[in-house]
């Protein structure tokens, strides 16, 4: 069951990417193309380099070899304006990372005001709409410490969306949540994907991947072992390693 929205031109193109931390190579020969409106899930055992790959896309981690382009912009160009790139790429983290000294509303408003230089009144109106969209009306003035994990994660999603990104990266965003709050967050992401937002998710939620993904990549040991539509990869994997992994998690 895909969402049936329009998939457009390639926006994130990853070619022959290798990433090493000192002597340890965590990614090798990664090739991936994500088009606008597409939802891509990356699955695989822990330590297979999935999160690192996401962090390479918005230049939080530099690649060792190969090329990544986002909307035509070379991410590994030394002259890259990292801030310009990051305005286009939103990212949500496993540990939410909300700014603890700011309310939910302020968390959402900060970057548009201080990074994009937009008008406060206009930003506030949009921030309130975004919080309503992630079903947090009434929590605008709560501090992160007063919110549940699922609520914090939805504030984090709204905070990223406030920058009007072209691509959203989700790094195991439900891994720290209990089953009930997990669902609130997944529903939010599904809606987002349904509206045509380009999403790249690292996830351990196989059911969710099958439901929302247009394309699934299985990584292991820093390599993409296989990829394909969720129905094929998750139900009829071609590779032994994929099968073994799915047997363990399903």
């Amino acid at each position: 069951m895909t969402t049936g929205h329009h998939i457009g031109r390639p926006i994130v193109v990853i070619e022959g990417v290798e990433k090493a931390f000192g002597a340890v190579t965590v990614l090798r020969d990664i090739n991936m193309t994500v088009s606008t409106g597409e939802t891509v899930c990356i699955i695989g055992p822990s330590g297979s380099g999935k999160s690192t790959l996401l962090r390479c896309i918005n230049a939080l981690a530099p690649v060792t070899k190969g090329s990544i382009t986002v909307d035509g912009q070379q991410v590994n160009d030394p002259k890259l304006d990292k801030l310009a790139l990051r305005r286009k790429v939103g990212m949500v983290f496993q540990q939410y990372n909300l700014f603890a000294h700011k309310t939910a509303l302020q968390n959402v408003m900060m970057a548009p005001i201080h990074v994009l230089g937009q008008q406060r009144a206009e930003v506030e109106e949009r921030a309130r709409r975004l919080l309503a969209k992630v079903r947090l009306t009434g929590k605008e003035n709560s501090y992160p410490g007063e919110l549940s994990g699922g609520q914090q994660q939805r504030v984090a999603i709204a905070r990223s969306l406030a920058m009007n990104p072209s691509v959203m990266l989700f790094d195991e965003v439900t891994a720290a949540l209990d089953p009930e709050t997990k669902k609130e967050v997944l529903v939010t992401i599904r809606e987002l994907a349904g509206e045509g937002m380009t999403c790249i998710l690292v996830t351990h939620e196989m059911g969710f991947a099958r439901e929302v993904a247009d394309h699934v990549y299985f990584t292991d040991g820093g390599l993409i072992v296989e990829d394909g539509p969720p129905a094929d990869l998750l139900c009829a994997p071609r590779h032994e390693r994929t099968r073994a992994f799915l047997d363990q998690v399903l």
Binding site: K82, G90, F99, A111, V115, R159, S160, M163
Partner: peptide, 8 residues
């Protein structure tokens, strides 16, 4: 990290 990702 999250602030960097928001282009601060």
């Amino acid at each position: 990290e999250s602030a960097e990702a928001l282009a601060f």
